[in-house]
């Protein structure tokens, strides 16, 4: 599971707390993600899963505790924060492609503007990535002309274009029509096979079983349980998790 022989964890959360007003959304979270690991975060809505993801690339600030990414405490702001974010890819439930830019431009924007990659090189790489996610033929279209599944695959290509050390996925298939879920999961499974470090908020058990090294069950702002996918789905330890699983298994 370790890449480059580096055994230090890629992400380390220590006693992380976060409030929204009076609401305590992250309660003393301790979590590590190893290099090359695929971590699935599962749990009831409102449990703090999105906030956890967003805290890791500091789209949300935390109140106290420590988040260490690749050996460094998350920078608070400015250039250093932008650099950190460029190393952590993020895929959102609602795709969030740039609506006024073509598919290709969506993918090349980061490398050219953040990394200073030459346009030709960025274009070439973008086409390779779009090929990889199966959207190369649509490179010159605009996001609104693509289906949800295609847009989400572009969003993955956009994240990959930055050569991130890790990608965060926040319910990447929840907004998709059922017939488009698998095409996105297939891309993600491919990434997992290639050794990408991933933290994936999802209720797709098939994905968790096939690709995840570990499942973290989160509810009410706490990590209630963590286990291997097989153990978690067949033999959950806590009532909270069993209760949740019985609800998602019935449909």
């Amino acid at each position: 599971m370790t890449e480059n022989g580096d055994a230090t964890p890629l992400v380390q959360l220590e006693n992380v707390n976060k409030h929204f007003g009076a609401l305590h959304v992250l309660k003393n979270i301790n979590l590590t993600v190893s290099r090359g690991e695929v971590l699935v975060v599962i749990g009831p809505s409102g449990g703090g899963k999105s906030t956890l993801c967003r805290a890791i690339n500091r789209l949300e600030t935390i109140d106290d505790g420590k988040i260490i990414f690749d050996g460094q405490v998350l920078p608070a702001e400015g250039k250093a924060l932008a650099r950190l974010r460029s190393e952590v890819g993020m895929v959102f439930q609602s795709f969030n492609l740039f609506a006024h830019k073509t598919i290709r431009e969506n993918v090349t924007l980061g490398p050219t503007k953040v990394r200073g990659v030459a346009k030709d090189a960025a274009d070439k790489r973008a086409m390779e990535l779009l090929e990889r996610v199966g959207i190369a033929a649509q490179a010159d279209k605009y996001p609104a002309q693509l289906s949800g599944g295609q847009q989400q695959r572009v969003a993955i290509a956009r994240a990959l274009a930055m050569d991130p050390k890790m990608i965060l996925f926040d319910e990447p298939t929840s907004a998709l029509d059922p017939e488009m879920v698998q095409e996105v999961l297939d891309v993600m499974i491919g990434l997992a096979r290639d050794g990408m470090t991933m933290m994936v908020v999802t209720h797709e058990m098939g994905f968790a079983r096939r690709a995840a090294n570990r499942v973290v069950f989160m509810a009410d702002g706490q990590i209630v349980e963590e286990n291997t996918p097989d153990e978690f789905f067949t033999n959950a330890q806590t009532d909270r998790a069993r209760d949740f699983l019985s609800k998602i298994l019935t449909h």
Binding site: L59, A82, R85, S86, E87, G89, M90, S94, N96, F98
Partner: peptide, 21 residues
């Protein structure tokens, strides 16, 4: 949509860059 601004920040664009681009 706010999500586009977040996506821009998430790929490492600065505030000025996401504003202007």
């Amino acid at each position: 949509p706010l999500g586009q601004a977040e996506a821009a920040r998430a790929i490492g664009l600065t505030f000025i860059q996401s504003l202007t681009m």
